[in-house]
Every structure is written in structure tokens, then in C-alpha cells.
Amino acid sequence: MATPTWGFNGGHLGPTLRAERDDSFDVLQLRAAERLRPSPAVPARLAEDTGLELPEADGSVRGRHFELLRSGIDGRPMAMDRVDETVTRGTAEVWTLRNGGDMTHNFHVHDVQSRVLDVDGKRPEPALRGRKDTVAAATGSTVRIALRFDGPSDPDIPYLYHCHLLSHEDEGMTGQFVVVEKGQRAGEVPDHAGH
């Protein structure tokens, strides 16, 4: 008799059936002590996000739109020899993420932290109001994030933005952007042939 478990089934995380043979192995065992120390009390007031280090929408110089599909971002699978976006160092932008796919996509942008401006046009819930380096875009939702690009610039060495689910990333849900100095253009991506 097959036992239902959770795992990858055809590239999707979800219920699968495992045959009677048990091919599992123990990785970690946690044992609680018979008597535990009491936990400290939760503070009456938690720290507030001052927003000083994160960009706002009104400080952005440009908006970009990304359609998140398993076939690729904006319908294009990742290409190592292509720069998809060029951003100027020291500027802030608003990126709109639209999930037109069939499952949640965890969108991650390298070398920046972002602020979630809104989810489906509504103010984000408290858990989404701090610094983020990855944001979940649920099926059918639209998430707007503000980002500021203060990291190192190099017109020839791209950063990535991608779905943070490994199987989606492997299927091509990844794009590349370069950060350039004001007035500079994107260069040429290094040849990765044979690497």
C-alpha cells in the first residue's frame, strides 16, 4: 500500500505517493529536556521600522513590470548571454511583479533589499513592511516593491533576479541586470561557454 507524503511530483511541491519500501534516512533528531527553562517575556512594544534605509515610491526614477511565469520572467527563459535590464547606481526604482502563473513565486533580487509598497493595491500586512530580499507573489497577485541600487556597478558583470524556488530557477525563471554609473551603458556579458 502506498503512503502519502510531501515531496516533488513532476517538478511541483505537493502530495506524492511513496511505495511500501522505505528509502528514508534520519538526518537530525531533536530531543527536548524533561524540564525547560522559561522563555523571556515578549516585549510590550517591538522595534519599529524607521524606513530610513529603504526607498519609497516617490523617490524612484523608473518603474519596471515583470510577469512571473514558470516558462520564464516576461515569457523569456534565462539566457546567460543576455542582459535583461540596466539600472543606474544610486537610484531607486519601483518594480511591479505580476504572478500570472499557477503557484506562488518567491521573487529575489541580488544585492539589494526592497520595501513592499503594496499587494494587489493594498497596504502590505505588518510582516511585509520591513526590509525584504525575497517577496512571495501569490498566484494571480500583483506586488509592487521599491528598490535602491547602491551596490557596486559593473556594466559587464550582471546580478540576478529570479524565483527562489530551485526547480523554477532551473527551468529558466531568472533574469540578469547590470548596475551602471550615470550615463554608462550595459557592456558585454562574459562568455560562459564550457563553464
Results as ranks from 00 to 15, higher is better:
Lys182Thr: 09
Val178Arg: 00
Val42Pro: 02
Met78Trp: 10
Val42His: 08
Asp23Gln: 13
Trp6Met: 06
Thr88Ile: 03
Ala79Leu: 08
Val178Pro: 00
Lys182Met: 05
Pro152Lys: 14
Asp81Pro: 02
Asn9Ala: 13
Asp84Pro: 05
Val94Glu: 01
Gly121Thr: 02
Gly151Val: 05
Glu125Ile: 13
Ala57Gln: 13
Val119Lys: 03
Phe177Met: 07
Leu166Met: 12
Gly101Ser: 12
Asp49Arg: 09
Trp6Phe: 09
Glu85Tyr: 11
His110Gln: 11
Asn9Cys: 08
Asp102Glu: 13
Glu169Thr: 07
Leu147Glu: 09
His195Gly: 04
Leu128Asn: 04
Gly75Gln: 07
Phe107Glu: 00
Gly172Trp: 02
Ala137Val: 15
Leu69Gln: 07
Pro55Thr: 03
Asp156Gln: 06
Arg21Met: 11
Arg144Gly: 02
Leu160Ile: 06
Ser153Val: 09
Leu69Asn: 03
Gly175Lys: 03
Glu181Ala: 14
Ser39Phe: 09
His162Leu: 12
Ser167Ile: 07
Ala32Val: 13
Gly59Asn: 14
Arg70Pro: 02
Arg129Val: 10
Arg129Gly: 02
Arg37Trp: 11
Thr174Val: 14
Ala127Cys: 09
Thr16Ala: 11
Glu20Arg: 12
Glu169Arg: 12
Asp150Ser: 10
Asp111Ser: 11
Glu93Asn: 09
Leu117Tyr: 04
His108Gly: 06
Asp74Phe: 03
Ser153Trp: 04
Asp102Val: 11
Tyr159Trp: 09
Ala47Asn: 10
Asp58Val: 13
Arg64His: 09
Val61Glu: 15
Asp154Gln: 04
Arg123Val: 12
Arg98Trp: 02
Leu28Met: 15
Arg18Gly: 05
Leu165Glu: 14
Asp156Pro: 01
Leu147Asp: 03
Thr96Gln: 03
Ser141Pro: 04
Gly140Lys: 02
Gly140Pro: 01
Thr3Asn: 10
Pro43Asn: 04
Glu188Met: 07
Pro124Cys: 09
Leu160Ala: 07
Arg70Gln: 06
Asp191Lys: 05
Pro190Leu: 12
Leu128Arg: 13
Phe107Cys: 01
Trp95Tyr: 06
Arg89Glu: 09
Gly10Lys: 12
Ala136Val: 05
Val178Gly: 00
Asp120Leu: 06
Leu30Trp: 15
Asp111Arg: 09
Asp102Gly: 04
Leu147Ile: 12
Gly7Tyr: 05
Pro126Glu: 06
Leu28Asp: 10
Phe177Ile: 10
Leu147His: 02
Asp150Asn: 14
Gly130Asp: 09
Ala47Phe: 06
Thr3Gln: 09
Ser24His: 12
Gly90Met: 08
Ala127His: 14
Ala41Gln: 11
Tyr159Met: 08
Pro124Ser: 11
Arg37Asn: 13
Thr88Cys: 00
Leu117Val: 11
Glu56Leu: 15
Phe149Trp: 08
Gln184Asn: 05
Asp118Lys: 03
Arg70Met: 06
Ala193Gln: 15
Leu46Tyr: 05
Phe177Glu: 02
Phe149His: 03
Leu160Gly: 01
His192Leu: 14
Arg185Phe: 08
Thr3Gly: 08
Leu52Cys: 04
Ala92Met: 04
Ser153His: 08
Arg21Val: 13
Arg115Gln: 08
Asn9Trp: 08
Met1Cys: 07
Phe25Tyr: 13
Arg185Val: 10
Leu13His: 03
Arg131Cys: 12
Val94Ser: 00
Met173Trp: 02
Glu20Lys: 12
Leu13Gln: 07
Val112Asn: 04
Gly121Ala: 04
Trp6Asp: 00
